[in-house]
Design a protein around this nucleic acid. Sequence first.
DNA 1: CCTGTAACCTAGAGGATCTAGGAAACGTGG
DNA 2: CCACGTTTCCTAGATCCTCTAGGTTACAGG
Lengths: 194, 194
Amino acid sequence: MARAGLTVDRVVTAAAELADEAGFENVTLSALARRFGVKDASLYSHVRGLADLRTRLALHAGGELIDRIAAAVAGRAGKDALAAFAGAYRAYALEHPGRYAATQIRIDQSLIADSPALRRTAEITYGMLRAYGLQEPDLTDAVRLLRSTFHGYCALESAGGFGADRDVRASWDKAIDALHLALTHWPRETRNDD
Amino acid sequence: MARAGLTVDRVVTAAAELADEAGFENVTLSALARRFGVKDASLYSHVRGLADLRTRLALHAGGELIDRIAAAVAGRAGKDALAAFAGAYRAYALEHPGRYAATQIRIDQSLIADSPALRRTAEITYGMLRAYGLQEPDLTDAVRLLRSTFHGYCALESAGGFGADRDVRASWDKAIDALHLALTHWPRETRNDD
DNA sequence: CCTGTAACCTAGAGGATCTAGGAAACGTGG
DNA sequence: CCACGTTTCCTAGATCCTCTAGGTTACAGG
């Protein structure tokens, strides 16, 4: 009986394709095994189980995402870099909805620590913001605001959460303008002075 | 044999409790039936199936959420209203992680149209923003920015996505300051003039 | 060519969704 | 108060999924 030639990498790659085609929640070991023409029990030689597969997929997708972002941001600064970051982020989320959904799952804190992709994400984000002249803790606050907005927007958009007629891309550009404005005039004190 | 006295409402309410206790992805018909001391097939008299239960739960949670927000925002305006809105939103997400997760699922567009809760959410959000003097399409853009940021922040926070030491609540307050600033000085033209 | 290590298999337990059809509790009208 | 129809809940079973235990067989290195 000829072997299928499975590897952890091939399994995760196939899972990524399956996620985009069928949705992240439909990434199952059975479906994956079917795709390889193999019994589902065979996959347990390469992957510890469904949970393991999903976190591997999440880290895989996270790595792809940050690679795209890094390429887009390279050589840019200020608003230019912000727009490039945001553009790459949203493009990935729309192109690869299943993989993007994978990046949203909760991952064991111990795995996060030694994931190069996630550390790289932090570096690039902080690096981009350095042009705005923020100091800690404002820097961290700003990173959180950016991540939240990008993630929230893409999650809502890909979930069909934006019903109004207004062009979704135009709103996205406006959101980036607004974030840029907020970053350049970052509120220094948190007084309630409206 | 004494009946358990199930109703659609009781089933959905129990599902909400189960979601908060065990996580949204563990809201299953079997677990729910176990909780009522009933066979899982019995639930099909009240609910069409798992998908139906989940969307009912989503609408239920969405209604609760907007009720909280409406109560918090009532009688306030400007930054005060924004902070109240944001506070109620985040409090609900943290208090009821399972229910909040339910509000994030994709819902059939036809159901969205005739859901009072979702319509009310739009009304209240647009109403709150009217104080900033925005006109369409900026109004819709701003609504999308707010929703995205609130949702993204709460999703990341409850997923343990914020690793840095910085206080999560303090970052949230800063994010609201930043959004208020962005709303008061909303970028009128989308020129790339940095 | 032989031998050890993976890769892949069969078999089966356990738990989930969902359907079909039956029995018993309950409300209502005569 | 009782018969009837409706609703609630049941049993039985098909189908799909995860995961374990243990057995074969293909393949690579000596």
